[in-house]
Design a protein around this nucleic acid. Structure first.
Lengths: 159, 159
DNA sequence: ATTTCTGCAAACGATTTGCACAGGG
DNA sequence: CCCTGTGCAAATCGTTTGCAGAAAT
């Protein structure tokens, strides 16, 4: 976890009058010690390894705070699957492609898409707050070769 | 409900070897008698008005069939809110803008966005199956005038 | 001392499922 | 008749919440 992130969170908590606790520290440490997506339950596991006293309730109570801070993003993958993404620190505008075959989530950024979204929203008389593009797709490699080597690899394509 | 839709559904059920029942008929009738979005529970209400014997379980068992038929679209609005959209018959590629102020859902289509999405997916080695753009936004009118007259009105903008 | 945090376990709410019966082919 | 479809009620599953005690300021 980068020191910059740690400081930003620390400041955020202070500005909200929220206290620094052993459990929250562990959860924060866990939340930003990976660049993978994780579920609330997976975050509980990770936090638990750092500080065994962390309970599920506290994880659920801390997650909205982190999301609020702007450093963690909540992704609704549909079908009730909810995932958290710590990569928005580095890539604030990325979107997601979800492979229906291997369930892999790929991240990608595209400036044109970004512009287009803003344009559409303004044309309708709105100021965009939160944009999310979700593409569900099938793996070409799997279809052609019967194997998919992508499993979990992140691909960032800039246009 | 248009006769064309009725026929398509009828054919679809037949092709899958699914039976025609009083309850299913009522649910189908209800599902396509509006152009608004609705939840599973709201569909139960609507079906119930047509045929009181329709139960919640049957609605939940019928919805996936309708989605499968391609005539009804399932929209995951996030936060566990799931909504069904019968408008894909007329506008197969529309996206959604969700107003954070009045919760209104606006539909819009944009060919460029459509193309861009396909392009991104292919570049990453995938064949897109299901694309969804969700823009959460704030109403300019409300911000400037303190009132929002849009409430529930559908806006279809073609680019 | 005061207030926020915490773990626990119970509550929740939308959706799913097992069952025995009803009804379509 | 056979097998699918149905209602009911119980089960699920991720998430939220009330409470009393623990810890931070």
């Amino acid at each position: 976890m980068e020191q910059a992130v740690r400081n930003q969170i620390r400041e955020f908590l202070a500005s909200k009058g929220l206290r620094k606790t052993t459990q929250r520290d562990a959860i924060i440490e866990a939340a930003f010690s990976t660049d993978r997506h994780y579920t609330a339950d997976e975050l509980l596991d990770m936090s638990h390894r750092i500080e065994p006293t962390v309970s599920r309730a506290t994880v659920y109570r801390t997650l909205p705070i982190l999301v609020d801070s702007g450093l963690l993003r909540e992704l609704d993958l549909g079908q009730g699957r909810k995932v958290y993404d710590p990569n928005f620190v580095d890539h604030p505008h990325h979107n997601h492609l979800i492979c229906l075959d291997c369930k892999t989530i790929l991240e990608f950024e595209d400036l044109n898409m970004e512009l287009l979204e803003n344009c559409m929203a303004r044309r309708m008389g709105f100021t965009p707050a939160n944009k999310q593009v979700r593409i569900e797709a099938r793996c070409d490699e799997l279809r052609l070769n019967g194997v998919c080597r992508k499993g979990g690899r992140e691909v960032t394509a800039a246009a």
